[in-house]
Amino acid sequence: MTAVLVFVGAMVGAPLRYLTDRLVQSRHDSLFPWGTLSVNIAGCLVLGALAGAGTALPGPILALAGTGFCGALTTYSTFSYETLRLTEQRAYFYAAMNAAVSIIAGLGAVLLAYSTTAALIA
């Protein structure tokens, strides 16, 4: 049953990632991958909140929303590819900023969501 929940969560997360990425990127005339950054930070917020809920969250919900949805919504491989592509295009500033902002904002989003949710549930 857990595998089915992961599958269902991924069925929602993957298309949402694609659509959000395209929508956000279409609004920016820049080499910087704003769409990927947006979905990754959103996924960090959701997963941080799920983790912050701790044992108050049933395991099946974590499988559905955490592993399935967030796993399909966020994308480390695309982040890595886009950073490499920026480097190949000699857009070194954008490549460095993509790496730095993705890591710092992602960790910050997880920390914010985790601590907020943990405080609300405790």
Rank of each mutant, 00 (worst) to 15 (best):
T117Q: 06
F7I: 13
V4C: 09
I41P: 12
A42C: 15
T83R: 14
H28Q: 08
F79S: 06
V12C: 06
L37K: 01
L120Q: 03
V8C: 12
S26Q: 10
E88S: 14
R22G: 03
A63S: 00
A118E: 11
L45F: 13
T78S: 02
A65M: 06
Q25T: 13
Y76K: 04
L23G: 02
T67P: 07
L31K: 08
R17W: 04
T78Y: 06
A91E: 13
A53L: 14
A99L: 13
T75N: 08
I61Q: 07
V39E: 14
R90K: 13
T74N: 12
Y114E: 02
L19V: 10
A14E: 00
I41V: 13
G9R: 03
Y81C: 09
A96C: 15
A113D: 00
T36S: 06
S38H: 10
A105R: 15
D21M: 14
I121S: 11
L5N: 11
S30E: 01
L31W: 11
G108R: 06
H28N: 03
I41Q: 09
A119R: 12
S102W: 01
L62K: 10
F7Q: 09
L73Q: 08
A113T: 03
V46S: 00
A53V: 14
I103Y: 09
L111G: 08
F7R: 10
P60E: 13
L47G: 08
A51Q: 05
I121E: 08
Y81N: 10
G66Y: 10
S77E: 07
Y94C: 11
A56D: 00
D29M: 02
G43A: 07
D21G: 11
Q89D: 04
V8Y: 11
T2V: 10
M11Y: 05
R22S: 11
G71F: 05
A65W: 02
V24Y: 01
T83I: 14
G48I: 02
A91S: 14
T67H: 12
G9I: 01
Y92S: 01
A51K: 05
Y114R: 04
A51G: 08
L120K: 05
A118S: 14
L5G: 08
M1G: 07
A113R: 08
L23R: 06
R17D: 01
A65G: 03
F7H: 11
W34E: 03
A100G: 04
A10P: 01
L112Y: 15
F7G: 09
G48H: 04
S38R: 14
G108T: 05
P33V: 00
G106N: 04
A53G: 15
